[in-house]
Every structure is written in C-alpha cells, then in structure tokens.
Design a protein around this nucleic acid. Structure first.
Lengths: 120, 120
DNA sequence: CCGTCACTTCGCCATGTATAGAATCATTAG
DNA sequence: CTAATGATTCTATACATGGCGAAGTGACGG
C-alpha cells in the first residue's frame, strides 16, 4: 500500500507529471527540467527527489550536472507498470506534445546557458 | 493531462485507495464503506464522489441505499488501465488483504445495522 | 586551498485538502 | 401529507503540500 501511495502521490501533481513525461524520450539535466517547468530550482529539485523516492526516476551525477531518467528496467514491477500506464495514458495528449516540442528546443541550447537560471 | 491528474489525485489518498480496492470483489453500499474506513459519513461520501468524478467508480441508487462499484467496462481506457494497474499492484498487499477480510465480516451484517452510524 | 557553479536542503508562507458536524436533500414508510 | 432514514452538501478547522529564497553541499577550475 505504501509503495502504491508513494507512486500515486508522486504522479498526482501537474509539475511532477510533466517532468516525468518529459523524460520519456531522453534523460534530462535538472536545469533543463527547470527551463521546461518554469519553476524555481529548489522546487524542481524537490519534485525530482519525490519522483526518485517513489522509484519512478533515477539520478545520475556527471560532474556538477545531475541527470534524471525514467527508472525503466531498474524499477520495481509496480513502479514500472505505473510508468507504462502514465506514458500510455499521455499518448496523444496535446499538453504533453507541447512539452515534448519545448524539450526539443531546449536540447538545442547549452547546459551552460540554461543553468544561468541560478545566476539571475 | 487533466484526466490523468484527476485519476492520480483520486488514487493519491490512502482512504480513497482502500475504498477502491474494497470494491474489487463486489459493489458496496456507502454505509459499508463507512464501516470499512472508520470515517464520518460526509467524509466517505466526498471521497467516493471524487473517485466517481475521476471515472474510476460508478454509483447505483437502490431506494435509500447508494451502491458503489468499479467502473470496469464503462470506464475510459485510461481509467480502466489505472484500475488494472492499481488492482494488480495491490495483489499480495497485506493491508489490502486485511481490508478484504474485514469486508467479508461486514457482509455478514445487515445494512440496517451498519447504517446505525447515522444515528449514533 | 579558494572561489565558482550546479544542485540540494532548510525555513517560511500561501494554498489545498482531509476531516467532522450541521443543515439539507431524496426516498420510503406510515 | 408527515416522519424517519440514508446520503449529500455546506461550513469550519487542522494539517499537508507546493512554492520561493537563503543557506549549505559537493565537484571542478584556478
């Protein structure tokens, strides 16, 4: 029951849901997720920590950058099924497509430029 | 995105999750759900309304009694997949089994007796 | 080392939500 | 009709949660 609730609570927020769906195609750095969601770094960091705690997302450190990706094969069966459900449910969602296009645009920029959000 | 969020928010509360899982085997009257959850009638009623709004549950009126059941075939594909995920995820959950046993006990009692919760 | 940088954690505030009780609604029994 | 009953809606309140900014952490460049 606890794992299920951690997952449903993690998925029960629009920002976290968008972040998770944003990871469908590729792993993303926190500063890229900040740009996608338009929220403060501390807020996005907390959201990603909650998704990771629920077992839906994994974190990879590369120098000073922290990359997040879907848990995939390393996830528990329950978490993996949840990811499958939500990604399938979001197919054809216009809001998710808008975000996907936005990510393509974000990918054309340098991480250096994106992480300027910390200095503004 | 909106339907997904309605579903994940509806599933993101322990009482609502227990209520939904309680409907796996059979439909239940509100007073039976009140007995199961041990909450005030108004609270349980609101929880069930939220589950119904998310398309996870259907309501059937029989005289003064209101019965709730899983949406099943009448549910949208997204909601149906969510129900499948959560019921599969709860298989073998001890907490869910405890509730299931509790429901068996509740089923041995009359609705009249259970609905005494309104008069106490 | 020492500063910078990407990120996280902490402290706080505003909003949202779960809960109970009172009032109300709808249905049935008399 | 009226009263009783099961459920819902309304109102109020306590707690949880999302949000930000400031301070702290760990890695890299000098």
């Amino acid at each position: 029951m606890n794992e299920i609730l951690e997952i449903t609570k993690a998925l029960g927020d629009e920002s976290r849901l968008r972040a998770l769906l944003g990871l469908r195609a590729r792993e993303l750095c926190l500063c890229q997720l900040i740009e996608l969601l338009g929220l403060a770094p501390s807020t996005v960091s907390k959201h990603m920590a909650q998704l990771a705690q629920a077992g839906l997302v994994r974190r990879r450190k590369e120098g000073r950058w922290h990359f997040y990706r879907l848990a995939g094969a390393s996830a528990s069966p329950v978490a993996r099924a949840a990811i499958e459900w939500v990604t399938e449910a979001a197919r054809g969602e216009t809001a998710a497509s808008v975000d996907a296009a936005r990510i393509e645009e974000i990918m054309t920029r340098d991480l250096e430029e994106l992480s300027a959000c910390y200095r503004s």
